[in-house]
Design a protein around this nucleic acid. Sequence first.
DNA 1: GTTGTGACTTAGGACATTCCGG
DNA 2: CCGGAATGTCCTAAGTCACAAC
Length: 767
Amino acid sequence: MTGDNGRGDSQVNCGAKGSDAHKHKDKHKDREHRHKDHKKDKEREKIKHSNSEQKEHSEKKHRDKEKLRHGDGSSDKHREKHKDKDKEKRREDRIQSSHSDKPKKEKENGYVRETSPAAIKSEPEDDNSFYPSPKHNKTSKRECDDEEYEYKPKKVKVEHEKKAKKRKHEYEDDEEDENIKHKKKTKDKKTLEGKKAKKEEEEKWKWWEEERYTDGSKWRFLEHKGPVFAPPYEPMPDKVKFYYNGKPMKLSAPAEEVATFFAKMLDHEYTTKDIFRKNFFKDWRKEMTSEEKSKITDLNKCDFGEMNEYFKAQSEARKQMSKEEKQKIKEENERLLQEYGFCIMDNHKERIGNFRIEPPGLFRGRGDHPKMGMLKRRIRPEDIIINCSKDSKHPKPPPGTKWKEVRHDNKVTWLASWTENIQGSIKYIMLNPSSRIKGEKDWQKYETARRLKKCVDRIRAQYREDWKSKEMRIRQRAVALYFIDKLALRAGNEKEEGETADTVGCCSLRVEHIKLYPKLDEQEYVVEFDFLGKDSIRYYNKIPVEKRVFKNLQLFLENKQPEDDLFDRLNTSILNKHLQELMDGLTAKVFRTYNASITLQQQLKELSCSDDNIPAKILSYNRANRAVAILCNHQRAPPKTFEKSMQNLQTKIDEKQNQLSAARKQLKAAKADHKASHDEKSKKAVEVKRKAVQRIEEQLMKLQVQATDREENKQIALGTSKLNYLDPRISVAWCKKWGVPIEKIYNKTQREKFAWAIDMAEKDYEF
DNA sequence: GTTGTGACTTAGGACATTCCGG
DNA sequence: CCGGAATGTCCTAAGTCACAAC
């Protein structure tokens, strides 16, 4: 077993569900169904940018295109051929024309103020002495937006003494250390609890009320314990055999470990995929002794069956563990979290996001990944670069090992990093989203989007103008930008061919990804998009565009092969440079943030109804959220049990309905009874029945709301947009305005991440 | 300009835990 | 209290984008 967090093989499971062609097919069909189901969905019509209506019409037709998701890749060589051509074209392109550039603005928002050097605090050892006790410098609420920003010379983050004390309580309560727990018990628990609830809000460190660094540094002081390594490999018991060519064979530990990775995945279809097997076998052989290497020459002759059984039995055993055993594991995890899960950054104890090193296993990228099945090797201390402040207590490498390097770079936010062997990219250990460093950035992101709001009209006017440009590159840029704005497409960086799954974004769209229909059904100038985007999620949409855009697209398509770039004179760097000139800090992805947030705000305005009850309001919120998810194409695989659970729900609704009519009859009867007798007893009976009817009505209502919500949500993932695209202040304001408790919208983790927004947004907040 | 690299955000799926009606 | 659904957490892949180096 590798990572004994119970998820040791997780990277390998990732995407397993969708890994083979059939499954994908199914998945897609499923999604299509869902789209069809949505047809009636009136909510959709209201969505500003959503073109889902059209989407649905054509879905049926599109079944045969299913394979697209993990397409056959047959066009690759072809594409290569055309690369040179592209370059030529680009050269031709510089025909002329001075394009009036907007003067650059000054600075990235929020990072404009003067920095003042900060005192570095290095003391705290003990979990509860993290909060020194400087004077708190209460500043007026900070505006993140540069234009509205008040610049005040500043101290470092400091915490009010009182606050610091309170914080202690908080930690006591949440993350008790044994002896603190003890102390706590001696206190009057009730008082403490009562106070705690009240304090909770006011005592959390409000970094958003403090100044930020303006010199590009991310921190002054950083201390942590280093990462937690994956548990070492535990060899198989001898009785569990591996067979080669029908004969048992004892493997060397390294070879055996890699074999177990494969054995664990035997049930997954992708172990039958050629690329997967090829990659695995190649990497596995590298781990073998020369003797093994000479013996094991054919993966098909390998039998991992017993090993597979063994792991199944193990995971079964884990499920069957007693309460105490489970508790013990939990406690151990908690201990690890306490020890390694936090760091001290600038006087504050902050939660680390991922303090565990990724365990070794077989790589399974998403979609049709050329590297699937490769061995993701075990990370050792010698691979790790530690980042912390000079004057901190440096983390110790495990006994007998060394770090690759210890550096002190406060221009970056990571605590540790290593190079991963599949793509050769760097992986990092960073802080939790609730941390100051992530929160500030997030806040800033939404401020940039709000600045875009102020000038989006101008920018739109500009790109529309550019559709007429004499220069091809400008036209392409303008059309691409139109897509990014209207359809919330991603920028679409170039990718190295053969290194990753074949997916695209706006700038990397190819001819084969769009189809033009001068006339389709009732509509003119329809463009059909069909391509795989990030994570190999299919983007399928039919959308009418303006005539000029359409004509331009026709022009771009002239004399091109399906595998040629649609925008052959454009890439993300050109586009972003242009955007930067239009607005300081503007990049392609800001449009996604902007359009997502503005859509939410609009939808909430439209859908919310003051006499709705809370569940109905939440339904409206979810619908608004859903509009955004559709815009951003955030999909999810329909839950496996969806159909069944839907049926169950329907049965419940039917039952409830029967109950209701029965209850109504009874009420009627009781009323009649009362009319006849006019006595107290019958009057009471009427009341009782009335209440019953009311209650059942409510229950029915609730069920129906639930059914609608769930149905509408079948294949749409709301979480991604909620977490990454929607300015949380919009949601907070909405909650305040309509009296919806914030807990109904954000769970605990989300509330932690958005603490800044929850604290600062009032009901009249406007994005 | 092109290419490569580094840092950081965004993403969906697997798995664990909690919730809820019977 | 039990089982299934819902929700929450963890995991890590896959994007974006700036910047350095040629």
